[in-house]
Amino acid sequence: MKQSFDEKALLEGLLNHNPKAVEIIYKESFHSIQSLIINNNGSSDDAKDIFQEAIIVLYEKLRSGNLNLNCQIKTFLYSVSRRLWLKRLQVQNRQYTTGDSLEPVIQVDDELELQKQRDADFELMEKAFQSLGEPCKSLLEAFYIHQLNMQMIAKKFGYTNAESAKNQKYKCLVRLKKIFFENYKNGNRDE
């Protein structure tokens, strides 16, 4: 049976990492954004980067509890991608050559301003993870990102049982927390 999604279900799917929903969003929106970027001095790789960044902006917006888009997903992603790409071209001193296409565009400056702060938060945690070292880094990633359970983690990392893996996970978590708050207090946010 073919799963069908309306826009609202797609947004919920994105928020919950549903592969089918992400695939539909991708198929519906990627092409117009790719041609925008390629016609403006970009490559396919640039298009992939910018498009994925735009999806993350959307995801963060949904996460912050704002499930109302007031426009189509496609329009939102196109507008954000366009803005992001303009910015990147500016930074690289390159030109935006063609005028706007026929795609509808909405204002996204406020959303991108919010995104800046979210990116900073994300990087703060990323930095803490980077300085955590192994095997803590892999262990926490396995638990929190790949969502493996303790039995699987014990097996993968070679702990004798789930209980000792759990113990190790706590130790790692405490270390991560310490690094995170140290960076936080040292004002690493502005770096």
Binding site: H17, I55, F122, I145
Partner: peptide, 22 residues
């Protein structure tokens, strides 16, 4: 913050997979 971070990481890898698959 950690769950937020993990969610975004997970999405990022899902996006890459979908991209390749498509």
């Amino acid at each position: 913050e950690l769950h937020h971070f993990a969610g975004r990481k997970k999405l990022k890898s899902l996006l890459n997979e979908v991209h390749w698959q498509l």
